[in-house]
Amino acid sequence: MVVWAIANQKGGVGKTTTTVTLGGILAQQGNRVLLVDTDPQASLSYYFGVDAEELSHSVFDVFTAGDSLDKDKVLDSLCSTKLDSLFILPSSMALATLDRTMGTQPGMGLILKKAFAKIADEFDYVLIDCPPVLGVLMVNAVAACDKLLVPVQTEFLALKGLQRMMHTLEIMSKSQKRDFDYIIVPTLFDKRVNAATEAYRNLCETYKGKVWSGVIPVDTRFRDASQAQSPPSVFSPKARGVYAYKNLLTQLQTKVGHVS
C-alpha cells in the first residue's frame, strides 16, 4: 500500500482538487483507493456529498479509539463513492479539538500510521487531504506517508507560505530522525499572467530538484466536477487539468514502481 499526503500550510492552493483528481485516476486504473479527510472543514467529504456531521463514524473515531483501534473500526468508518474502488474516510468538525484535548499524549502523532497498517491489505493507495495548519493532524499525515505532495499556487503569497511548510518539514525531520520524500506541485497556473510565470520561475530556482517538471493549469472543469460531486477524471476525462494530473501521476508511479 502506497500512502501519499497532500499538504501545505496555506489554503486555496489545490490540496483537495489534487487529492480527488489523483484518487479518481488511480481508481479508474483498477486500484483500490482510500481518500482520507483530515481537515475539520471537511471539503473532501462534502465534495462527494458526504455530510460529515450526519455520520455516526469518521476519522475522529480512529484518533480517539486508543487501544481499541482495530481493522474493523477503521473499515466501519469508511464511506463509498460512485466509483466502486474509491472510498473515503470522512472528516468531522470534532477534529478541531484534537490539538487541545489530545495533542500532548504520547504516540499521538502516529495514529494514522498505525491505522493504515491495519488495513494495508485492503487498499493499493491512500491519499490524505491535510488541513492548512500545523498541528497533530498534519503531523500524523506526514508521519504516515511514503511521499508528500505539496501543491503550491503560482503566485507570490503562496510562495511565501511554502517557506512555512518547508520549515515544518525540517523540524519534523529532526524530531523523527528521518528525511521526508516530497515533491512540490505548481497549481492554478495561468500562462497568460506574467505574475504566474514569474512565480513559477522563482519556485523552480528556489527549490531546484524538488519541483515537478509540469504544472496544473487553471481549469474551470475542476469546479464543474466539484458541483457534480464527481472526480474530474470521470466528469471530464479530456480536460486539460486532468491531463496534467495524469502526467503527474505517471511520474509518481514510476518513482514507486507502480505504473498501471
Rank of each mutant, 00 (worst) to 15 (best):
A115H: 09
F63T: 06
S45K: 08
D84T: 03
L75T: 13
C79Q: 15
I119G: 08
S92L: 02
V136N: 13
Y46P: 11
L83F: 05
P131Q: 15
A144E: 00
D76K: 04
A96C: 03
L86F: 05
D67Q: 08
D84F: 09
I119H: 06
A144Q: 05
P106G: 01
L127T: 10
G103K: 07
K71S: 15
I111R: 02
P132F: 04
L75G: 09
F60P: 00
Y47S: 10
K147Q: 11
Y125P: 06
L112F: 10
S92E: 02
K147R: 12
G103Y: 14
K82D: 13
G103I: 07
D70L: 04
Y125I: 02
S92D: 02
V136H: 08
K71V: 11
I119L: 11
A94C: 03
A52Q: 14
P90A: 06
T64H: 15
L134F: 13
S92N: 00
Y47H: 07
L110E: 09
K118P: 14
L78R: 15
V62K: 05
D76E: 02
L137P: 14
L44N: 04
L110I: 08
A144M: 04
L127Y: 06
S43K: 10
V139A: 13
A144S: 09
F60Y: 07
L95V: 06
P132Q: 01
S91T: 04
A120Y: 05
E53R: 13
Y125C: 02
E122F: 15
Y46C: 05
S43M: 12
P132T: 00
C130I: 05
V150S: 04
D51Y: 12
I88T: 13
S85Y: 12
P40A: 07
G135M: 02
P40M: 08
I128Q: 08
G135D: 11
S80A: 14
V139I: 12
A94S: 15
P90C: 00
I111K: 03
T81V: 03
S77K: 15
S91D: 06
S56N: 11
I128A: 04
P151S: 07
L34P: 03
V150T: 02
V33H: 03
G49N: 14
I111N: 00
Y47Q: 13
M138T: 14
P40L: 11
S58H: 13
I88N: 05
V139F: 10
G135R: 14
Q105S: 09
D51M: 01
I111W: 00
K114L: 00
M108D: 10
L35W: 02
A52N: 15
S80T: 14
M108E: 12
F87V: 07
D70G: 03
I88F: 05
C130E: 01
L78D: 02
G49V: 15
L134Q: 11
L110W: 06
Q105T: 13
H57M: 04
S91A: 12
L127M: 10
L69G: 05
E122G: 10
S58W: 08
F87E: 08
E53Y: 11
V74A: 03
I111C: 01
G103C: 12
V139H: 08
V33P: 03
P132G: 00
V142H: 10
K73W: 04
F48I: 00
E53L: 12
L75E: 02
K147E: 15
G66Q: 02
L137N: 09
